[in-house]
Amino acid sequence: MKHLTPPDILLQASGLHKSYPGGAKVLGGIDLDLHRGERLALIGANGSGKSTLLKCLLGLHDLSGGAVTSFGERFERAPSRAQRTRIRQKTGFVFQQHCLVRRRTVLCNVLHGLLGDPGSWRGFSHMTARADWRVRAMAALDDVGLADKAGARADALSGGQQQRVAIARALVRGPELILADEPVASLDPAAGRSVMELFSGLCLKRGITMVFTSHNMAHLADYADRVVALRGGRVLFDKPAAAVADDDLERTFA
C-alpha cells in the first residue's frame, strides 16, 4: 500500500528509532515533517542524535524502528536500492570542512557532485568529464562566486572558500533538498556568516529545502525558518525560529 503524504511534505519521519549494533540507543521515537522550501535548523548537544537523524532520513543508516517517507518513497528499516538511488539524486550534502579532495582542482571537486548518477565515473576528473557537465560545474561555481578559482587546487583556498566549493558541489545536481552537517563549524565567525548567508540565499532563491545542524545560535534566527531541538534522541521542541527563547536553548544544552 502506498503511503500518502500531502504534496508539500518532502520528508516525514514517524516513530523513528535507531540503535547501533553495540546496543547504544541514539534515536528514541522521532516524529518530524519537513515541508518543501523550508529552512530547518537541527540543534542539540554532541551525541543528541542530529547527524544520525540526517543519515536515517536519507537511508544512509538502517532504521531500527518506525518509518521514513522521503520524496514520496516510503521505507522501513532500509530503502531498496532503487529507492536509495532516487532519494540521493534529489539530495545534496554539505559536510564539515576537509571533505574536498585536496590535490584536485576546484572544478574537479564540483564535478564530483555529479558522480552519483549511474555510469558517471568519467566525472572523476575535469579532463575526462562530459562537456555539458563541465559547463554545469562552472555555472555552479559561478553561483558561489568562485568561477575565477576553477583551476586552483582545492587546498590552496581558504576555509570559507572551500565550504563554498562544497556548496557548489551540492548544488551542481540541482537538488530539491540540501542537508548540511555543521557546515561552518570549523570557520571563524565572519567567514561562517558569509558562507551561511550565501548558502541560505541560494536555497531561498531556488526553492531548495535546507536542513542544517549548527551550534551557533545566532545562525538560527538569521538562516532558519524553523528550529528542531533534539535531546537524548527525542524531539525536545519544534517551533518557528522567531519563537525560540533563551530558556529553550538552556533546556537543549543543559
Binding site: L60, R84, T85, R88, Q89, T91, G92, F93, F95, C99, L100, H112, G113, L115, G116, P118, S120, W121, A166, R169, R173
Partner: peptide, 9 residues
C-alpha cells in the same frame, strides 16, 4: 565519505 553519500560507485 562525501562521494559515497551522494551514491558514487
Amino acid at each position: 565519505q562525501a562521494l559515497e553519500a551522494i551514491g558514487a560507485s
